[in-house]
Design a protein around this nucleic acid. Sequence first.
DNA 1: GTTGACTCTCAACCTAGGTTTAGGGTTTAT
DNA 2: ATAAACCCTAAACCTAGGTTGAGAGTCAAC
Lengths: 137, 137
Amino acid sequence: MEKKLIQIGELAKISKVPIATLRYYEKRNLLKPTKVKDSGYRLYSQEAEKTIGFVKHAQELGFSLEEIKQLINLRAPSVGRCKRVRNRAKSKLEDVREKIRLLSQIEGTLEKLIKDCEKSKTSSNCPIIEGMEDIND
Amino acid sequence: MEKKLIQIGELAKISKVPIATLRYYEKRNLLKPTKVKDSGYRLYSQEAEKTIGFVKHAQELGFSLEEIKQLINLRAPSVGRCKRVRNRAKSKLEDVREKIRLLSQIEGTLEKLIKDCEKSKTSSNCPIIEGMEDIND
DNA sequence: GTTGACTCTCAACCTAGGTTTAGGGTTTAT
DNA sequence: ATAAACCCTAAACCTAGGTTGAGAGTCAAC
């Protein structure tokens, strides 16, 4: 049971996120320090780095901090009572799959674009959007 | 050859985006009207709706307007000269694949979470982030 | 017991991506 | 030729997601 707690500055360094941002995440209820000293100093477990990594990645995938908070809170909700959690998880799963679907469409279009450019170097017809027509609901 | 041009208001209605946003996209070089009357009135082809749909979807996928502009401009660059375009497309393709990889990871975690909740309804161990540990580079 | 590197709160500020407002032309139908 | 419904520009304003700064406390080392 390694339980070494670290200060905010070290967490900031290892997770490559400014200290102010960590405090901001706390205000937004995304990341709570494991412990707070009487002095007010925040102490975090190493785990915190994973949460931060998750937040950063999820942002790149177009989730808002609010959505990310909900994703995080799917874990450790009111113990037991999984039903509500399951429904929220299912709904999020839909969102995620839709994103994957859209990205796959873009992936396909980019692949085609690259191949077309490769064979006919003079091609001025690289229809990136046209290839994405069927993206829309 | 249907070439019916439409006014900004109609485009706004069919694409479900406020007029002001369309003008804003124009300023950001994401969407140019097909034609501009002497009065200053913008006229768009029906195609414009697809571009807007693409922009909106790409935003949900975490692309900035700047990145989206680049994606759009992969089409119709300096005619011929595909080499630079191809390289940019390849780079974007990497980005897209990385996003898909991350989303698939989240998808898997959510699936597992749902399954676990389904079998043991008392389970208080729904590790959404733990399951995403290996997401990080 | 003071110096230096840390930490705290609170408030002001910043950028992206819009939205709203003010003041004024244009088009169509009557 | 005038009303109703469009459209224009320019500029101020707004929200999310931070970032920066001021002023002050804390902690380890000397």
